[in-house]
Each structure stands twice: as structure tokens, then as C-alpha cells.
Design a protein around this nucleic acid. Structure first.
Length: 447
DNA sequence: TCTGGGGTCCTAGGACCC
DNA sequence: TCTGGGGTCCTAGGACCC
């Protein structure tokens, strides 16, 4: 038996944790460069904000409905996510953290799964301040589907256990849900299924698994089995080693100066190398991409890869290779809008077989990287950076609506002045959620 | 004016091996 | 005249996920 625990409108909910004045108000979170909508609270959905909408196209709607719009505060979300996962793990030890806002749990052998689901949901709300839903089923796909139902139907109160439903209810829910809403069915597959008159989850449930494999792929066959409660996917408590690290960002403005392009590439190389060192990895290859605005007629997509003499996690080595590539693919006169760095063919530094003639990163390099990492972890990600990154500002990312990193920076802590009248900390105007409201003392402690 | 970022998996086809 | 069978590895492209 599997459970799927999923934070509701996760990024939007994170923005509300320290802003009770925004409870029950429409909230949206924007992608990097304040580009598109990537998270919406229920109220924002009701106001008609579509997922993925470019911000500039909906700014009228935002204005009219008084919607609070935030730049993406990834540092905050990652920290609240880690806290949420630890909280879930306190009740469900066998956990697979599937994404920033969801986790699968092994519920096998649990006598009252629904009660445990309710308990998890309440604890996550009480301890972290994030509303979550729980779906329970005999396969991951059914747990996902149940979670989907729990999110959309108030009658489940946030927890849906497929095993508790009657056969009639199950068929009803499957008949009334589009096949596009299933985990693993995207736009293309959904359209192909539609051509064969497979419209609802029920239609796919009734399809022949072997035929689905022949017509589509083994993944669709698995979904059919999983809908019947035959699990084809296991809980992966230990995530397999990462195969690549990619860092890329759009620029606030178009850039045609090679110095500025190299500054951006250098930044991404530093960030990617730091990510690599976090799990003690080494990269054998480095790739660089630069791209003009994809919505304009004049286009150039530059891309090249190089392999290193020896696998490395040294920021200086990786960044030198990356900026060299950038110089090679750059075309003078083009206006670039995005740059990225990829680290490929990753190996684990602990288990790698060394090369007699190419020892790779020296002791000195390792010590230097360790020092940089500890300074950056204490004073913020970019406290130590390379001089190349100081060139230009057009390539910086636009983030005009950024909230404080309440939980990871001392100087951005939520400030509460006790005993004064004007605290800047507004109590929620509307009543709180009745089943969730934490006791006053606890919410004060959290803040 | 303005349009995101970071991943993985599966399949088909070609190259190559014995 | 006649020209097999079985396998792996790699890559590109497509599709999916959040």
C-alpha cells in the first residue's frame, strides 16, 4: 500500500506561512525573471489565472483582483520542503521524496491507513504551516489518483483512501476524470489515446495492457496495471545517483557582449560545481548553451560540449572550460536571452578509479573548494565568486517581487514587536481555517 | 517592453561484435 | 547459384514529471 503526500499549491502556500494576512487571499508565484505563473492559490485559480500564463499578459487581472504576486523564492521553498519531509517522516518512516512538494510513503501493514493520512496532514499543517493532501492506494498511480481526488473534492477533507471506496464509487470517479489528469499521461499521449476513444481514466482502466504496450509504450501498459492495483513501480527510498547537473537562466535584458555572456556562464558553472560537490561528484564533461529570444524571428541556439582531461569538481576548472566554450559558440551581433551550463558523465569521487597520468583535482584545489563552500554556506550562495561574474548586469535575473528568506537568513527573519500597536504584522482579516488553526501561542512561536 | 528551470525514461535505428 | 543469427552499446529524439 502506498500513500502520496502532496503540499497544496506548494510555492503559494510557502509564501503564506509567514504572511497570515494573505490567508484566503489570491496568491501567485512567478518563474525566474518574473516570467510565468508557476503556482496559484485556490483563490487565484478562481480569479481565472491560468497556469503558466506570462505575467505581463495577466497583470490587469492581478491588479483587478488584488492578487499578491511573488518572485520565485526557491531558497525558502527548499527549506520549508525539507522541514515538511522531516515532519512526514516522523509518522511514515519509509519515504520516497518524489519532488519538492510531494513524497510517497510505504503504508503496507498499516491497519488504519486513512487515520494515519489524517494525522500526517494535520501534523504538516501544525508544524510547518503548509496545507497538504493525502492519497492512498495499492499502487503509486492509484495513490496519485486518490491524491488528485482529495485535492479537488471537499467531501474527502484532504484524505482519499482508494481502498475505502466502494466499487461503484471507484467507477464513478474514474468515469468522471479525464485521462489527461493521470500521472504519466501528458499532452501528446493523451491526444493519441483520445484518437482511440480513450477519454476517461475508466476507458484506460478497461483497455488491454498488451495492446497499450504495442500501440504506445511499456509506460502506458504499466499505468493500466497500476490502475488495477497491480504495482509496477516500487518505493525508491534511495534516489539513484544524479546523471547531470544543469544551471541556466534567462537574462533580464538581451545581451550581445561576449564579456557579459561569459559572466553568466561563469556564474552557472560556479553554481553547478557547488551542487556537484554537495554529493561528492565529479564531472567528466562540460556543456554550454546560449540562446537568443525564442519568441523573436532572428534566432541562434549555440551549444557545444567538451570533455575534461580528468573528472573534476573544481569550480575554476569547470568555469574555465565553460567560458572557453562560450567564446567558441558566440556569434557577434546576436542578442542573447539565456545561457546555461551542463555537467555530464558524472562520477562518484569515492568510487572512481583514478588515472595514473591524470590525477585530477589536487589536494590544494579540494581545500580551496571546501573553504569557498563553507564561506558561501555561512554568508550566502554568492559571498565568494569569481571576478568574471562582475561584468555587466543585463544578464542578471529579474526578481522584483521577492519575499524574505524567513527561515534561512538571520537578517531576513520575520520581525514581531510585542506590545506595540503598529507591528506591521497584520492579523488575518477573515477567520482562519477551523480544522487547522494552530493555537495562538504556537503561531507566535513559529513567527 | 515582458514568455522558466531542472530532471528522467523509453524507443528506434545504426554501428559493431562474434 | 548461393549471402545467418544473436547480441550489446550508443545516440537522438520524443515524451513525461515537478
Amino acid at each position: 500500500m502506498f500513500a502520496l503526500i502532496d503540499g497544496n499549491s506548494f510555492f503559494a502556500s510557502c509564501e503564506r506561512v509567514f504572511r497570515p494576512d494573505l490567508w484566503r487571499k489570491p496568491v501567485i508565484v512567478l518563474s525566474n525573471n518574473d516570467g510565468c505563473v508557476i503556482a496559484r492559490s485556490e483563490e487565484a485559480k478562481k480569479a481565472g489565472i491560468p497556469m503558466g500564463a506570462p505575467f505581463f499578459k495577466i497583470s490587469g487581472l492581478v491588479e483587478r483582483h488584488g492578487i499578491a504576486a511573488f518572485s520565485c523564492n526557491y531558497e525558502l521553498y527548499a527549506d520549508l520542503s525539507a522541514r515538511m519531509m522531516a515532519c512526514v517522516a516522523s509518522l511514515a518512516p519509509a519515504l520516497e521524496v518524489y519532488s519538492i512538494d510531494e513524497a510517497f510513503a510505504d503504508f503496507s501493514g498499516i491497519t488504519d491507513a486513512s487515520a494515519l493520512g489524517v494525522k500526517i496532514r494535520h501534523r504538516v499543517m501544525r508544524w510547518i504551516g503548509i496545507p497538504a493532501c493525502v492519497g492512498i492506494g495499492a499502487s503509486k498511480t492509484l495513490a496519485k489518483f486518490s491524491n488528485h481526488l482529495a485535492k479537488r473534492n471537499p467531501r474527502f477533507s484532504g484524505v482519499c483512501n482508494w481502498l475505502d471506496l466502494t466499487e461503484t464509487e471507484r467507477l464513478q470517479w474514474m468515469r468522471s476524470t479525464s485521462v489527461f489528469d493521470l500521472w504519466g499521461i501528458g499532452r501528446k499521449l493523451g491526444e493519441k489515446l483520445l484518437e482511440q476513444r480513450i477519454r476517461t481514466v475508466f476507458d484506460l482502466y478497461g483497455a488491454d495492457p498488451a495492446l497499450m504496450r504495442r500501440r504506445h509504450s511499456v509506460t502506458v501498459e504499466r499505468i493500466v496495471h497500476e490502475l488495477h492495483g497491480i504495482p509496477c513501480l516500487e518505493l525508491e527510498e534511495i534516489s539513484p545517483a544524479q546523471r547531470q547537473v544543469l544551471r541556466s537562466r534567462s537574462f533580464a535584458e538581451e545581451v550581445s557582449d561576449i564579456g557579459e555572456i561569459k559572466a553568466a556562464v561563469s556564474r552557472h558553472a560556479h553554481s553547478a560545481a557547488a551542487a556537484l560537490r554537495r554529493w561528492n561528484g565529479l564531472a567528466s564533461c562540460v556543456g554550454v548553451m546560449i540562446r537568443t529570444n525564442r519568441f523573436k524571428a532572428e534566432r541562434h541556439f549555440g551549444w557545444d560540449v567538451t570533455s575534461l582531461p580528468a573528472p573534476s569538481s573544481d569550480t575554476l576548472v569547470l568555469s574555465a572550460a565553460a567560458t572557453r566554450l562560450a567564446g567558441r559558440i558566440f556569434r557577434p551581433g546576436m542578442k542573447y536571452k539565456k545561457a546555461g551550463v551542463v555537467l555530464l558523465e558524472l562520477v562518484d569521487a569515492n568510487t572512481r578509479t583514478g588515472d595514473l597520468f591524470n590525477p585530477g583535482d589536487s589536494e590544494r584545489s579540494r581545500a580551496l573548494m571546501q573553504t569557498i563552500d563553507s564561506i558561501n554556506s555561512r554568508y550566502g550562495g554568492e559571498a565568494v565568486k569569481s571576478a568574471a561574474e562582475l561584468v555587466g548586469t543585463k544578464w542578471h535575473t529579474r526578481r522584483e517581487r521577492l519575499s524574505p528568506r524567513y527561515t534561512t537568513r538571520w537578517d531576513e527573519l520575520r520581525r514581531v514587536d510585542a506590545g506595540t500597536t503598529n507591528t506591521g504584522f497584520k492579523e488575518p482579516v477573515s477567520p482562519r481555517r477551523p480544522d487547522f488553526s494552530p493555537p495562538r501561542s504556537e503561531s507566535a512561536t513559529r513567527a
